[in-house]
Simulated assay, not measured.
Amino acid sequence: MDPRSGEPRALSEEVLAVAARHHQGRAHAFTKELHGQQLEFGTEPRTAMGEVAAEIERCRADAARIAAEAGVAVVALATSPLPAGPAVSEGRRYRWIREHYGLTALEQITCGCHVHVSIASDEEGVAVLDRIRPWLPVLVALSANSPFWQGRDSEYHSYRSRVWGRWPSVGPAELFGSADRYHRQVRELLATGVLQDEGMVYFDARLSRHYPTVEIRAADVCLDASTTVLVATLARALVDTAARHWREGRPPGDHGVGLLRAASWRAARSGLDGELVHPDTMRPAPAGQVVQALFRHVEDALDGNGDHDRARKALDDLLGGGNGARVQRRLLRRHGTLQAVVAECVRRTQEEVR
């Protein structure tokens, strides 16, 4: 963002050049994304959530430092509150996306949070995908951090997920039942010619192309690093719980994709401030009740991973203080302008890691 106006700036190439100078040719965590206003980073594999937290904070601090050298500020938002013009990054892949998807690609300045959790095999991974489907909207509600779009209040908590849903392969997937059926479905999608490559299979959760992991892709980028860690903690616990249920022979729920899409819409619309669709009943229930149901669902896994107390406190803090969407709207009421919202979110993004 421009540190004075709060408007997005397409300077990721300049920021990455600063990062390259700092690291003197060594690999670093930062990469470009579809639009020049975006900067992506990825953490190294970790097993302890304290280590995940430290690495996220380090990467955020590094991002703030290198961006400042390029004359801009970084902010952990899933959409820009202020209008952002299209600025598709250079590269053959991005040009193909721009040419094939038109306005969908031009407007896709959205930032998601992806969590990779290791699995023993593709068969286990698909069993996990089949069993975590109804719980992923709860992660959307917890992480929701995109209430504003092109200078207006969207009236959603996670408008990013609605914009993201314009891609042809986005959203909940059907029950696969086996790794063979999963891979066959991916091949059939690619055979349509609608997608460029397997990287564009944008299911809410999928098998990673590059790592032995399940990749959960439902969440917004979170305003606070602590929320990111909570989402990662719950994601790991969801995977561990699903894998255990598979080994015990417990079948997945047979919720149809239409029901899951409705649950995802409700999570994006309401966040933590209204009702969500309860994964057990597929009926509306207060958001707090559904979040507590998620915690109970994964509680044994949290205990086994040594994450229970930390996750309990982080969840209580989030429910009390609100997700990023609630914080942004509170800032707008207090300060009166979206420019001030961005400035406060920049401060919050950077202050947390000092």
Rank of each mutant, 00 (worst) to 15 (best):
L189W: 09
V194E: 03
A205Y: 00
F203K: 03
E188L: 12
G199V: 14
V194N: 01
T192K: 02
R209L: 13
A191L: 00
V221K: 04
V201T: 10
A205D: 03
F203D: 01
L207M: 15
F203V: 00
C222E: 01
H210R: 15
A218F: 12
P212M: 13
D197F: 06
A205W: 04
V221M: 11
A218N: 08
D197A: 07
Y202D: 06
E188R: 14
R217E: 06
D220T: 01
A218V: 15
R217Q: 11
E188Q: 06
F203T: 03
A191V: 01
D204Y: 10
R209E: 12
E188A: 12
R209D: 14
R217V: 00
D204M: 05
V214C: 04
G199I: 09
T192A: 07
S208W: 06
Q196C: 07
T192V: 09
P212Q: 11
D220G: 01
S208N: 09
L207Y: 11
S208I: 08
Y211S: 12
R217C: 08
A218S: 15
E215N: 10
Y202W: 11
G199F: 08
V221F: 10
I216F: 00
I216T: 00
R206L: 09
V221T: 08
G193W: 02
R217T: 00
R206F: 10
E215Q: 07
E215S: 10
Q196G: 10
L207D: 08
A219C: 15
L195M: 08
L189D: 07
G193P: 03
H210C: 09
P212G: 10
S208Q: 02
R206V: 09
R217Y: 06
A191N: 03
E188C: 07
C222P: 03
G193Q: 10
L195P: 04
R206G: 06
E188W: 04
V221D: 14
R206I: 05
G199L: 13
A219H: 09
P212I: 12
L190F: 02
V194K: 02
A218K: 08
P212H: 10
E215D: 13
R217N: 07
T213L: 13
Y202R: 03
L189I: 09
G199Y: 08
F203A: 01
L189Y: 04
C222F: 02
D204Q: 10
V201L: 09
A191W: 07
R209A: 15
C222D: 07
V221I: 13
L190M: 11
L189A: 12
S208H: 12
I216M: 03
T192Q: 07
A191S: 13
R209P: 15
G199K: 03
L189C: 12
L190D: 10
D197H: 08
D204H: 10
D220H: 00
L190S: 05
R206C: 11
L195S: 02
T192N: 08
P212E: 11
P212D: 12
M200R: 00
T213S: 12
Y211C: 12
F203Q: 00
A191P: 03
L189T: 05
R209M: 14
M200C: 05
D220A: 02
A218E: 10
A218I: 14
G199P: 08
I216W: 02
Q196R: 15
V214R: 01
I216L: 09
E188V: 05
L189N: 05
H210D: 13
L190V: 09
G193K: 02
M200S: 01
A218L: 11
T213H: 11
R209T: 14
Q196E: 05
M200P: 06
M200T: 02
A218W: 02
V214S: 02
S208L: 10
